[in-house]
């Protein structure tokens, strides 16, 4: 079970739905890591100590009800996110495994550039094999 604080060596997953990957080269689109203007947060899940099957189960339970079928995921170490001067803030209940990438810069164009870097570093995505779940 992950702790209350997020360790830089931890991995987090951003779950992907239809349209989040480029068909031609299997790269995650930058918009996947682009925060909405309303809250400047990107939702991720902490996958510390989880099996592949458990990671996809997390997506089925928490992401699919609102966003539709999950087709893959982009994994990043927390340290990669911190390198961009961002933070990963976990939910109060660590059992939820949910966290947000926060502390995005005020400058919209700077945010867009960071989103491109995170998408590049999270690529290629891990594709979900439906038989596993």
């Amino acid at each position: 079970m992950p702790g209350q604080s997020v360790d830089p060596s931890e991995n987090v997953s951003r779950f992907l739905v239809k349209g989040d990957m480029r068909a031609q080269d299997n790269v995650i689109k930058p918009t996947v890591f682009f925060p909405s203007a309303s809250n400047l947060e990107v939702s991720v899940f902490r996958i510390y100590d989880l099996s592949e099957q458990s990671i996809w189960a997390l997506a089925i339970e928490n992401v699919e009800p609102s966003r539709g079928p999950v087709i893959g995921r982009g994994d990043l170490t927390v340290s990669t996110i911190i390198e961009e001067s961002l933070r990963v803030t976990p939910d109060q209940d660590p059992a939820s495994r949910h966290a947000d990438i926060v502390s995005w810069p005020e400058d919209r164009a700077a945010r867009a550039t960071i989103a491109k870097v995170l998408a590049a570093k999270a690529s290629p995505p891990k594709k979900r094999e439906l038989v596993n779940v």
């Binding site: 080269d25 790269v27 918009t31 682009f34 925060p35 909405s36 203007a37 491109k116 690529s123």
Partner: peptide
Amino acid sequence: TPEPDGYLGLEWYANKWLL
């Protein structure tokens, strides 16, 4: 590319590090 903050993006893409 529609962007989540309400912008419409025009993207020229070569690869993930060149766009």
